[in-house]
């Protein structure tokens, strides 16, 4: 058996939509017998919190389709033309958009971010919290789920330099 393939990911975003790719790819790579390490930095760091509170932010996603998770098919398929001016400034819009997206994901059988994170842990993905971000944003190791290690740029690069796949998300 040849040596295990390795994948190194930097997870730098904390919105609900951007929280998915690192956990999907990390869990699947681990299921494909790769050694996987994910380095959580900047806005990605809160994804290691006990409770994930990630929301979608329509204002930073100009191309995000606004779809309804209920009603007949033609209604669900309709892309609501809500201008950025409105979605970005309307109080509570983020909360509404977040619950709509969560509902759509659930309807389509997509796992929650927390479920995917649990899968990562079960499959042996190593999660590293960025020490510098912890200092800047005021996080303690106790804020994070069990099994998280703490490190910095050199920790990540040491692993990434020998990884077959390196992704910045």
């Amino acid at each position: 058996m040849s040596e295990k393939k390795k994948m190194a990911i930097i997870a730098s975003q904390g919105t609900l939509d951007w929280a998915y790719p690192p956990f999907i790819l990390a869990s699947t790579a681990a299921a494909m017998d790769m050694e996987v390490k994910v380095f959580f930095t900047f806005y990605g760091l809160p994804l290691l919190n006990h409770k994930i509170k990630a929301k979608v932010s329509p204002s930073s996603n100009p191309a995000m389709p606004m779809k309804m998770p209920f009603g007949p098919k033609f209604f669900q398929g309709f892309d609501w033309p809500i201008p950025n001016m409105v979605s970005g400034n309307l109080p509570g819009f983020e909360t509404v958009a977040t619950s709509l997206m969560k509902k759509t994901f659930k309807n389509k059988g997509v796992a929650t971010v927390t479920e995917l994170r649990d899968m990562c842990l079960e499959l042996g993905v190593e999660m590293i919290g960025c020490q510098m971000t912890m200092d800047v944003f005021g996080f303690e190791k106790e804020d994070f789920i069990e099994g998280v290690t703490i490190g910095g740029a050199a920790t990540f690069l040491d692993f990434a330099s020998e990884a077959d796949i390196q992704l910045f998300i």
Binding site: I24, S27, T28, A31, K108, G109, V110, A111, L116, M119, L123
Partner: peptide, 8 residues
């Protein structure tokens, strides 16, 4: 179940 759950 949707991607990647069947594989996992």
């Amino acid at each position: 179940l949707n991607c990647p759950m069947p594989v996992l």
